Amino acid sequence: MKIGELSRRTGVPVRLLRYYEAQGLLTSHRSEGGHRHYDPEAPVTVGRIRTLLAAGLPTKVIRELMPCFADDGTRLQACVLDHLRAQYAELDSRIASLTQARTALGDILEASTRALTHA
Rank of each mutant, 00 (worst) to 15 (best):
R48K: 12
T27P: 00
L6Y: 09
A115S: 12
P58G: 14
R85C: 00
H37Q: 12
L57R: 02
D71G: 02
H35V: 00
E64M: 04
L76T: 06
L25K: 05
A86F: 05
T10P: 12
S7K: 09
A70Y: 03
R36S: 13
R30M: 13
Y20D: 01
R114E: 07
P13A: 14
L53N: 07
D92P: 02
R9Q: 15
L65A: 07
T113C: 07
L65W: 09
A70S: 15
A54M: 07
E21K: 08
A119T: 11
E41V: 13
V12N: 09
E5C: 01
I3S: 11
R18C: 00
L105R: 11
D82T: 08
A22M: 13
H29C: 00
H83Q: 15
L105A: 07
R36P: 14
T51Y: 08
Y20K: 01
E110A: 08
A104L: 10
V80W: 04
H83I: 05
V80P: 05
L16H: 14
L81N: 03
R18P: 01
A115W: 04
D107Q: 12
A42N: 11
G4E: 09
S31W: 02
M1K: 06
H29I: 05
T45A: 12
V46I: 07
E32T: 03
L109T: 02
G56Q: 02
R30G: 12
K2E: 09
L25I: 07
K60W: 03
L53W: 01
T117Q: 15
A78C: 01
V61P: 05
V80I: 05
L105N: 02
H118F: 00
A86R: 14
P13S: 05
V61A: 14
A22K: 15
H37T: 02
D39W: 04
D92G: 07
E5Y: 06
S7A: 15
E110F: 03
L65E: 08
G4Q: 10
L98G: 01
E41I: 08
T10N: 11
D71T: 02
S93I: 04
A101W: 02
A54N: 13
R50W: 00
L81S: 01
P58C: 12
D72M: 02
T45P: 01
L26C: 07
V12K: 12
I108W: 05
R75L: 13
L26H: 04
G106Q: 06
H29Q: 10
E64C: 00
T45M: 06
L105E: 01
L25A: 08
I3R: 08
G106P: 05
I95V: 15
R36A: 11
S31N: 01
V12H: 13
C68H: 15
A89T: 07
L16M: 15
G11Q: 10
L16Y: 09
H118D: 04
L76C: 13
D92C: 11
T10M: 11
P40D: 10
L17S: 12
G4A: 11
G4P: 09
S28F: 10
E110D: 13
L91P: 00
D82S: 12
P67I: 03
S28M: 10
E32F: 02
P67W: 10
E21L: 08
L16K: 12
L81C: 08
P43K: 06
F69Q: 07
R63L: 00
H118C: 00
H83M: 15
V46R: 09
A119W: 10
